[in-house]
Simulated scan of single mutants.
Amino acid sequence: MGRQFFVGGNFKMNGSIKAIKDIINNLNNAKIDPNVEVVISPPAIYLLLAREHLRKEIEVAAQNVFDRPDGAFTGEISVAQLQDSGITWAILGHSERRTILQEDNSFVASKTKAALDGGLGVILCCGESLDQRESGTTVEVVTNQLKAVAEQVKDWSKIVVAYEPIWAIGTGKVATTEQAQEVHAAIREWLKKEVSPEASANTRILYGGSVNDKNCKELAKQPDIDGFLVGGASLKPAFVDIINSKV
């Protein structure tokens, strides 16, 4: 069995009750490739709305989770609260949180461990800036982000890695097919050496960064690209075309 194709939709801080319901209605009525694992991630305030109205085979992810149990942590959401609400995934390490909120590699790793220990799946984001890309340190930057997680987590069976070059997120720029495949292959090789051959063979590595219905089919053909983490395009009906990009 090969790795199951995976498509996540990160709504970021977008949406309203009506907009989220419209997106869900479109997904509920769409013909979706049954071989693809699909997860959507609305803002926290709409997680329960999404879970209550979405067809069961599509899962829901939080855009963040805290690394401590319930307690005096104003504004945070615990792993147990997500589990209690039927939320099965969390997106962690997204570059917007790394850069805007200054979340460092060790904090991302700590949250990843907490989520996994509590039974959630983790979409673990990694990626480099334009300066890092141009200086030739892409692989070093990305694997350092993953290394911090590997120092705390041994079982990667519920981790999906999402490679998202920061310079391509929301900019309309997309890494070329060759650039994306090259980094995905490097991540897989790193997993083989630093985690285990099994983790390398089984871990799904997604591409994210201005993925849309026009470029997804070519990217999906690459041997080490196992799906997508989609931003703005996940808010549009064309998200279904991205989900079905392997058909």
Rank of each mutant, 00 (worst) to 15 (best):
R55Y: 04
V161P: 00
D224T: 10
A180L: 06
G127I: 01
A175G: 14
G15Q: 08
V211N: 12
P197T: 01
F107S: 10
S85M: 11
G93A: 01
N10S: 11
D117R: 00
A72Q: 04
A50R: 07
T203G: 13
D104P: 00
S196H: 05
D84T: 15
N26D: 08
V195F: 09
E134T: 03
K18G: 06
A50K: 10
E151V: 00
V149R: 08
I24M: 03
L229K: 11
I77F: 01
R51L: 10
N29K: 05
S196W: 06
V174T: 12
R68D: 05
E189P: 00
E178D: 13
D226I: 02
F239A: 10
A233C: 13
D131K: 13
Q152D: 09
E52C: 05
A201Q: 11
A199W: 01
L27G: 05
G227P: 04
G136P: 03
A238R: 07
L54F: 10
K192T: 10
I225T: 13
D22M: 09
L92Y: 07
N64Y: 09
N215I: 10
A175R: 05
I166S: 02
K154D: 08
E182W: 01
L101F: 15
C216E: 09
S245P: 06
D241T: 03
A238H: 08
D84N: 15
I123P: 05
L54V: 13
A220W: 07
V7E: 03
L49F: 06
Q181M: 08
E96N: 12
N29C: 02
V195W: 08
